[in-house]
């Protein structure tokens, strides 16, 4: 028994070695490097001198940068909420009404992943521009005479983000609802619950692991987004990701860029811990 147990542990250790090396080399070391850089001093011409310089973190507290970080979290939260509002009914529909076409429908949700995000974002520029399809259609049905300003606005950024991250919400919701035992709905109905009550008291609470996982999967990349605000926002919706990119690029201030990255990571971690605490970790057990 004891011998058998040890053998199993050795086997597991063997299986975990590749992933440990992988994550160590390509995740942990770069992360530590960023942490070290964040306390360094940037050279005037780029490059960095390591040391202990907390000044980079003090700079984060400039009202300008705090406002950008605040805006980033607001947009990321709004993106998450909209993805949930759009994604939940769809996942629900696929699981409970999709029948034999379930697999096909969930495949269709994943289709956008087969094309680069950049190409998809660019196609929105084409669709929403002054003489793009959207404006042509609106003019055709008589909603407007003059082309409307649909692109390079904060709303276009939000739309682009919801569009890009929606599948990350739908897939975990689908996985979570798929395991749902429909007999529970019948039981609720037998016990006199209305459809509304059945949903809010039975179905939704049981799908919480999917809601939590989906929210985290949407919120984290949204908060780090830097391409969509540039392409669809005309660079006027400045988010933290863009700000970090500027520090590593044009500003040649890798130390400040690293400090911003560390702050963003810490704030994201805090937000997620708060969220999971709030909703309850026990809900994650179904995962």
């Amino acid at each position: 028994m004891g011998e058998k147990g040890r053998g199993w542990n050795l086997g597991l250790a063997g299986l975990l070695t590749p992933v440990t090396i992988w994550l160590g080399l390509f995740f942990l070391i770069p992360l530590l490097l960023i942490l070290a850089y964040s306390f360094g001093t940037s050279g005037v011409y780029g490059g960095i001198t390591l040391g202990f310089n907390p000044g980079n973190y003090l700079k984060v507290f400039d009202p300008l940068y705090l406002q950008i970080i605040g805006r980033t979290f607001f947009i990321a939260a709004l993106t998450t909420l909209l993805c949930l509002a759009l994604g939940y009914p769809l996942a629900y529909f696929i699981v409970f009404k999709g029948y034999r076409r379930r697999n096909l429908l969930i495949l269709l949700v994943m289709v956008p992943f087969w094309t680069s995000l950049l190409i998809r974002a660019y196609s929105w520029v084409v669709i929403l521009s002054g003489n793009g399809i959207a404006n042509k259609f609106l003019q055709f049905i008589g909603v407007t005479d003059e082309p409307l300003t649909l692109i390079f606005t904060p709303e276009a950024v939000l739309m682009g983000m919801v569009y890009s991250y929606l599948p990350f919400m739908i897939l975990p919701l689908y996985a979570s609802l798929e395991k749902f035992d429909t007999r529970l709905k019948e039981a609720a109905k037998d016990l006199g619950a209305s459809r509304w009550q059945t949903f809010w008291r039975v179905t939704f609470p049981l799908s919480m692991p999917g809601v939590i996982a989906g929210s985290i999967l949407v919120f984290i990349p949204s908060a780090g987004e830097f391409v969509i605000p540039q392409l669809l926002g005309g660079s006027r919706t400045v988010m933290t990701g863009t700000l970090i990119q500027t520090q590593f690029g044009a500003a040649r201030d890798w130390a400040f860029g690293s400090a911003l990255s560390v702050m963003l990571a810490v704030l994201l971690l805090a937000a997620i811990l708060f969220y999971v605490r709030r909703v309850g970790t026990d809900k994650l057990e179904g995962m």
Binding site: V44, L64, Q67, I68, R71, S235, R236, T237, V238, L243, T246, Q247, A250, A251, R252, D253
Partner: peptide
Amino acid sequence: VGKTTREYERIFTEVKS
């Protein structure tokens, strides 16, 4: 412009946002 580069970037970020 040496160190002033960062001042330019800060101004541009402030203008854009």
